[in-house]
Design a protein around this nucleic acid. Structure first.
Lengths: 148, 148
DNA sequence: CATATATACTTGCAAACGGAAATAACTTGC
DNA sequence: GCAAGTTATTTCCGTTTGCAAGTATATATG
């Protein structure tokens, strides 16, 4: 429990809140999805068969199972994801990424990358970007299902 | 818009979500406050006269003004914060940290530091903690009212 | 094979949040 | 000093979320 840990954790929360707030506006206006919906599509895209059981998706997104249930419903209606059943286990209902969902993800990815560019713009050198990727990557390692 | 920017931004969101989720449980159980309430107390604690106009508090916390209004109400009832008016401008209503609020913040601070310790434990060297503080500090610079 | 326990998902309920509209107070340009 | 525009705050309404309870299915234990 080093002294700087607390400060680092506070800044982590602050920076994330700032970025998320900026992202939310453009995502809603341009792509019609929320930041969490974007992250859900992203988790699915990199999963085997581009699908995941709801419980696993909840773990990776750090939200509750009920949140996944209610997030998936409207996304199914507009065709971003679909529902699949498991032959071996009738309890599990996979959330599957559709082609439409993949297309929407690709579009939103561009906006995300642009905003990420603004965030780090003129602040860090290329070397520092690499250092940060290394450090935060080790944090994400502890999380279930790190994104890329 | 470097290639690694997007990955770094995703990991930033992921790490923050993970930490926030872990923190929320212990905060609610042990201290009876939410993570956002903790951050509000923290912002007030380091402000001049330990008080801030609601709009400024909203900006610093990356939430809407209405959220500050509704967050402050129950916190006033239990004496964590109080309301003060501005003599020069009758529109602004300061949120002021009380002694009770400062005490509660101090208690919660210990839990926060403990959880922050878990987050970075055995992952980063002291040098790396310093590097991270430097990097994320430059990000927070862009945000209004960086915490420490 | 029957019962107990564990797991996956959904639903009801209450808390938290953002955006728009309403109100009040300040500031600017003339 | 007055009209027009701006700023600070609150309230209303719809959306998102977590937790607890309920249902269905799977696994373990005797």
């Amino acid at each position: 429990m080093k002294q700087s840990d607390e400060q680092n954790a506070v800044r982590l929360l602050q920076a994330a809140d700032m970025f998320r707030a900026r992202l939310a506006g453009e995502f809603a206006a341009v792509h019609g999805i929320s930041v969490n919906e974007y992250l859900m599509l992203k988790h699915l895209a990199q999963a085997a068969k581009t699908r995941l059981p709801r419980v696993e998706l909840a773990r990776r997104m750090h939200v509750s199972a009920s949140t996944v249930t209610r997030m998936a419903a409207p996304m199914e209606k507009i065709g971003l994801v679909a529902r699949e059943t498991d032959e071996r286990d009738a309890r599990t209902a996979f959330v599957v990424l559709t082609q439409t969902g993949q297309a929407r993800l690709d579009e939103a990815e561009a906006t995300f990358a642009k905003q990420a560019g603004y965030l780090f713009e003129d602040r860090w050198t290329d070397t520092e970007r690499g250092s940060f990727a290394d450090l935060i990557g080790r944090l994400a390692q502890r999380a279930p299902g790190p994104l890329t």
